[in-house]
Design a protein around this nucleic acid. Structure first.
Lengths: 188, 188
DNA sequence: CGTCACATTGAACCTCTTCAAGCGCCGTGG
DNA sequence: CCACGGCGCTTGAAGAGGTTCAATGTGACG
């Protein structure tokens, strides 16, 4: 459709309240989707990785903001180019499936938010592992704050939980942005 | 489309894994949508009231179960009747808007789950108040367990929070299924 | 080499959960 | 008609898990 654009770390892709004229597909990198509260706190509602499509939540105005959490390549696609007059039914149906998928993801995220801190972190790791190329070597293209805001925890709890998993021989942390799953079954 | 059917309390409307051939519109009553875990615990992902439409989350198989929390009248509509061959674009677009709305609701529910117990209960009351006819008199067509499972709390905490709101003069509880908002502004 | 952003670690506090008991309502059956 | 039993709600006290506040550690970049 359109050549991918590149976004630097912490650069906004779209903001809450802006018209939703485009949808986005991540070629590489990572994007956070979040709400900002009055008190300055923010809550991530989703973390998108390579291959993910986002921007489908809105009817006409975006209800969330999005930023790159790491240098990213993102394909920007005009909505109107897809919903052509006369209607390509197959494409419309595909868009609806994608929205329904997004809904299921949001709900599975809900389930995660009701568990204890350890289960949340483990669930997060599984999530990221699935999206990545390797099942055992994960890299985290986001900060602890992003993870914490995504899981509804504090950065301290996330950090503590990761080190506890490491001392429990389940994972190892060569550096803060790299996780190696020692024993895939140990994440239970 | 079809005359509304009636469902008694705790009767299943559709179950996880069943084919998603229909969508549903509530005429009156209340429906819980939930996951059940291995340990028997369940988590409500949504509570639907009169006027709400549900069953849109699935591509082909339902990922959640639904039951009436109270005697309900529900209109059942065949999916195929809407997605007619050749395609009524306006209707398809409408379905997509509804799915996107559902996504936004799921996300706003996410936000609720990250707050303290009092904020969750208050948020829940506002939610129900908006769907009801009166802004100040709410009736709760579901049990404390439903509310607790919806908010990710225990029934004890829900109960305690409600009585604390009552002693704090914000609401009054003539009986367990009726809430009167004394001071709408006091819910802040 | 110093600074800044991010991550880690520790200790006190607070909220919600857990376990347990008691209450009120309503339908069933003697 | 009244007694009983079940179900749902309320209330209390002890315990666990996360948050908060504070200090330290570490790598990247000018």
């Amino acid at each position: 459709m359109c050549a991918p654009s590149s976004y630097a770390r912490n650069v906004e892709i779209f903001g809450e309240g802006e018209p939703a004229d485009y949808i986005y597909k991540i070629v590489s990198g990572c994007v956070r989707a979040f709400h900002t509260f009055d008190n300055g706190r923010r809550q991530l509602v989703a973390l998108y990785l390579a291959g993910d499509i986002f921007g489908l939540d809105a009817r006409d105005l975006h209800t969330i903001s999005t930023e790159a959490t790491a240098p990213s390549m993102i394909r920007v696609i005009k909505r109107k180019a897809l919903m052509v007059r006369g209607g390509d039914m197959a494409m419309t149906k595909h868009l609806m499936d994608l929205t329904a998928l997004e809904l299921r993801r949001a709900r599975s995220h809900n389930l995660l938010l009701l568990k204890g801190a350890q289960d949340r972190v483990v669930g997060f790791l599984r999530e990221i592992a699935q999206s990545g190329p390797s099942q055992s070597e994960i890299d985290l293209p986001m900060t602890r704050r992003d993870i914490a805001d995504y899981l509804g925890l504090t950065i301290e709890t996330v950090s503590r939980t990761l080190t506890r998993l490491e001392t429990g021989e389940a994972i190892s942390l060569p550096n803060p942005w790299r996780v190696v799953l020692r024993d895939p079954t140990a994440l239970n």
